Simulated scan of single mutants.
Amino acid sequence: METWKLNLYAAWVGCFFTGLAMSQILPFLPLYIEQLGVTDHASLSLWSGLIFSSSFLVSAIVAPLWGSLADRKGRKLMLLRAALGMAIVMALQGMASNVWHLFILRTLMGLTSGYIPNAMALIASQVPREKSGWALGTLSTGQVAGVIIGPLIGGFLADHVGLRVVFFITATLLFMCFLITLFSIKEGVIKVTKANRLSGKAVFSSLPYPALIVSLFITTMMIQLANGSISPILTLFIRELTPDTNNLAFLSGVIAAVPGVSALLSAPRLGRLGDKIGAHRILIAALGACVLLFCLMSTISDSLQLGILRFLLGFADGALMPATQALLLKYSSQQVTGRIFGYNQSFMYLGNVAGPLLGSGVSAMMGFRWVFIITALLVLVNTLHIAWRFRQIPTKP
Rank of each mutant, 00 (worst) to 15 (best):
Phe341Ile: 03
Met120Tyr: 12
Gly355Ala: 01
Leu182Tyr: 15
Ser48Gln: 07
Leu122Pro: 07
Ser48Tyr: 09
Ile123Met: 09
Gly351Thr: 04
Thr138Lys: 13
Gly367Lys: 03
Gly278Gln: 05
Leu173Tyr: 11
Leu234Ile: 03
Ile284Pro: 03
Pro268Met: 03
Gln392Met: 14
Ala257His: 05
Arg310Ile: 03
Ala63Tyr: 07
Ile255Pro: 01
Gly37Ile: 05
Leu57Glu: 07
Leu225Ser: 01
Leu236Lys: 11
Met365Ile: 08
Asn382Ile: 00
Thr299Met: 15
Phe204Arg: 02
Met109Arg: 13
Leu207Cys: 05
Met90Phe: 15
Thr138Glu: 06
Gln143Ser: 14
Leu380Tyr: 08
Met222Trp: 07
Val166Ser: 08
Met321Glu: 10
Ala354His: 04
Leu108Met: 15
Leu357Gly: 04
Thr107Tyr: 02
Asp275Val: 02
Leu234Glu: 05
Thr193Ala: 08
Thr375Asn: 11
Leu57Gly: 12
Leu293Asp: 10
Gly162Val: 00
Ile180Pro: 05
Leu312Ile: 08
Ser23His: 15
His160Pro: 00
Thr383Arg: 07
Gly94His: 02
Leu234Cys: 08
Ala70Ser: 14
Thr337Tyr: 11
Asp159Pro: 01
Gly338Tyr: 02
Pro128Cys: 10
Leu296Glu: 05
Thr242Asn: 15
Ile180Arg: 12
Ser229Asn: 00
Lys330His: 13
Gly188Arg: 14
Phe368Asn: 11
Ser303Ile: 06
Val362Ala: 08
Ser48Phe: 04
Ser298Lys: 00
Phe178Asn: 02
Leu80Ser: 05
Gly338Pro: 01
Leu111Tyr: 10
Ser45Gly: 12
Leu270Val: 00
Trp134Arg: 13
Pro397Arg: 10
Leu20Asn: 09
His41Tyr: 14
Tyr9Phe: 14
Lys5Ser: 08
Ala63Leu: 07
Ser252His: 10
Ser346Gly: 04
Gly85His: 01
Lys201Pro: 01
Phe347Lys: 05
Trp134Ile: 01
Gln335Trp: 06
Ser301Ile: 05
Ser303Cys: 09
Leu31Gln: 15
Pro208Trp: 01
Ala354Glu: 03
Val336His: 00
Ser206His: 05
Lys131Thr: 03
Val99Ser: 06
Arg281Trp: 11
Gly49Ile: 05
Ile218Met: 14
Leu309Val: 03
Met1His: 13
Leu26Gly: 08
Thr3Leu: 13
Lys73His: 14
Ser206Lys: 05
Phe168Pro: 00
